[in-house]
Nucleic acid binder design. Structure first.
Lengths: 182, 182
DNA sequence: AACGATACGGAGACAGTCTCCGTTTAGCAA
DNA sequence: TTGCTAAACGGAGACTGTCTCCGTATCGTT
């Protein structure tokens, strides 16, 4: 990539991250272009649609996912605590900006989504926790990772759209945890 | 209301119901106006925004909610079956058109929403089922109706956005049911 | 310095929302 | 019937956001 192109690319991603956080995932792309000091054409050449831009924005996020999972797995305490703690982290990870939880959760299991690799990372992270609990014999039979992602993603989506705080979310995560554990 | 106004009102609601079902909740309102044979001005005078139109569309739906609940409460079988069966009905009720589950669930507990009365009806319906189970001593402590609505609404939202079929939804409803029951 | 490939950016087509206001019509009263 | 007025209509158009096309500018190489 030419140096100026690279500069613009980076600038757009940086600005997009900021604007998505401020205004949510449905912010105007033309405005992002303007704030980044480029024309809309430039933005759309680098990112043919909103999702590819989101994908780029999430690039750095991938690291944080694995770090968070590592930490969650070292959790001292009961399996239930570990699971609920992980769910809270999970919700936090996908709730970076308004509209994020819905976007990410619905992309989960869709092989054509531009953010599929990011979803894969998240699914793998969740899988590590689930498999750890399964190995402990803590889970009921028939629990599938994708279902867990959807259940927790669904809660995060509702919380996002109803602007619920952590205190309102936790009891719902507990219900799901109790429904998954023996 | 003047006769012609009433006629247009009814026509718009009828067409909107049809178009929402066909194209989802984000269909073009100008198109609904066109199909109803009125100008956009007429539509927006009757319905200042999308939500008030949705509210009108849902008017007839209210009857169905209570009927469905009555039937669900007569369910023969275990508490678990009754609950899961109700959840499936609940999901069906709020999944009339694409975008519906998210809209309804996020309006739940928002006293300013134009569809608040409709949400109230739904919340009451859910409450009847929950209280019946609570009376049986079947529920864990601390279960709140609004949480149940949000949990099941979250599942319906994800199912809606990921276009999941009933078979994929049921196991998730089972998890929630198991998390709520003793 | 010159040149070709690469990238830029803004004008503008298009779609959707929503309003304003000149025109039409319903319904009533004489 | 006719005339009148309040009520309702409807479409032109302002505004916002998406996305493309293509003339212009810039990079980096020779």
């Amino acid at each position: 990539m030419r140096a100026d192109a690279q500069r613009n690319y980076d600038r757009i991603v940086e600005v997009a991250r900021e604007v998505f956080r401020e205004q949510g995932y449905d912010a105007s792309l033309d405005e992002i272009a303007k704030r980044a000091g480029v024309g809309p054409g430039t933005l759309y050449r680098h990112f043919p649609n909103r999702e590819t831009l989101l994908d780029a924005v999430m690039q750095s996020w991938v690291l944080r996912v694995t770090e968070t999972t590592d930490k969650a797995l070292t959790h001292e305490g009961s399996d239930r605590d570990l699971l609920i703690n992980w769910f809270e982290e999970y919700v936090g990870l996908i709730s970076q900006h308004r509209g994020g939880p819905a976007k990410i959760t619905s992309a989960m299991g869709n092989p054509d989504s531009p953010i599929r690799t990011k979803c894969g990372v998240l699914a793998d992270a969740n899988d590590r926790v689930i498999e750890r609990l399964r190995a402990d014999g803590a889970l009921r039979d028939g629990v599938e990772t994708i279902q867990v992602c959807r259940l927790v993603g669904g809660i995060a989506t509702v919380a996002d759209q109803s602007e619920l705080d952590v205190a309102a979310v936790r009891p719902m995560l507990e219900v799901v945890a109790d429904g998954l554990l023996r």
